[in-house]
Deep mutational scan, measured.
Amino acid sequence: MSIQHFRVALIPFFAAFCLPVFAHPETLVKVKDAEDQLGARVGYIELDLNSGKILESFRPEERFPMMSTFKVLLCGAVLSRVDAGQEQLGRRIHYSQNDLVEYSPVTEKHLTDGMTVRELCSAAITMSDNTAANLLLTTIGGPKELTAFLHNMGDHVTRLDRWEPELNEAIPNDERDTTMPAAMATTLRKLLTGELLTLASRQQLIDWMEADKVAGPLLRSALPAGWFIADKSGAGERGSRGIIAALGPDGKPSRIVVIYTTGSQATMDERNRQIAEIGASLIKHW
């Protein structure tokens, strides 16, 4: 067993022997301040990774656009098919120029040779490549099948209805392509620590998230040296922004954090800054 596999296998073990965790309302004060600064709703939840206990939450059962955070769930569904012998990570998928959609920095470079399922998941999570996500959605049967996968996990809230990039439209009061912070946090925890996926697939999923290259201005910008984070960000229309993450000190994750916002007129930089400040408060009061 590799060191990384050992780390993920012992996530519940280490967490069980940690000192009790206590909620700190100071972080919620910052979440509410972010709402004021952005002029928009902000949803927040913080779960203990081992027990699933909610440590703090704000608007945990209000719907927010998922945006690209759905790509972690998508690759979880792909990995479940791999575990069941219905898919192979090494299978190569070929596609054409007509398949390319807006923001496809990886797939646009491989029109000639195609990409493997493993490479597509890596591109979808680490670079948020939209064509990679659409190609992977095709392998599982489309958005409705991802929703069905989530329902089978016990998540009857999260739903995907459309493809990239239309799913980022974020129309107010439109339930399409949305989740709730509580539902997303619980589902992410199941994917990373539950028995739904094999140990190898859980490790692969967290490795992809740990290698995320496009979430630097968010929670990662607030992390002290030595902290662990595996995350996936999302951005959408109407001032929408979000991030889902597993993080913790001492090089291992111990909490799940989900943050979503929508309806702001603020710039992307300002949305990023507010999420980073929430992260800084979380870490300060850990």
Rank of each mutant, 00 (worst) to 15 (best):
M1F: 02
M1L: 07
I3H: 12
F6E: 06
L10R: 05
P12F: 13
A15I: 14
F17P: 05
L19A: 15
L19H: 15
P20V: 03
P20S: 08
A23C: 06
T27R: 03
K32D: 05
K32Q: 15
D33L: 13
D36G: 15
Y44N: 00
L49E: 03
L49T: 08
N50Y: 13
N50A: 12
G52D: 08
I54A: 10
S57P: 02
S57N: 09
F58D: 02
P60N: 09
E61P: 01
R63Y: 07
R63I: 08
S68M: 00
S68C: 01
T69Q: 01
V72I: 09
G76P: 00
A77S: 10
A77L: 11
V78Y: 03
R81W: 06
V82G: 05
D83W: 02
Q86T: 13
G90A: 13
R92C: 07
R92A: 09
I93S: 03
Y95G: 03
S96N: 14
S96D: 12
N98S: 14
N98T: 15
Y103S: 05
P105F: 05
T112N: 13
T112C: 10
V117N: 04
R118S: 15
R118C: 13
E119H: 09
C121F: 01
C121E: 01
A124I: 05
T126L: 08
M127A: 08
S128G: 03
D129K: 00
G141V: 04
G142P: 02
P143I: 05
P143L: 04
K144F: 13
T147D: 09
L150S: 06
M153I: 13
G154I: 02
G154M: 06
H156V: 11
L160R: 01
D161E: 08
R162V: 02
E164T: 00
E164N: 00
E166K: 12
N168H: 05
A170V: 14
I171E: 15
D174M: 04
D177G: 03
A182S: 13
A182V: 15
A183L: 07
M184N: 01
M184G: 02
R189F: 12
L196D: 11
T198I: 06
R202D: 03
D207S: 15
A211N: 14
D212S: 07
K213N: 11
A215N: 05
P217W: 05
L218P: 03
L218K: 02
S221V: 11
L223C: 13
L223M: 11
P224F: 03
P224C: 05
P224K: 07
W227E: 01
G236W: 01
G236K: 01
E237K: 13
P249N: 08
D250G: 13
P253D: 07
S254W: 09
R255D: 01
I256R: 00
T261L: 10
S264Q: 06
A266F: 08
T267C: 10
D269P: 09
D269F: 12
E270M: 13
R271Y: 03
R273L: 12
R273K: 15
I275M: 11
I275S: 01
G279I: 04
A280E: 15
A280L: 11
L282E: 04
H285V: 09
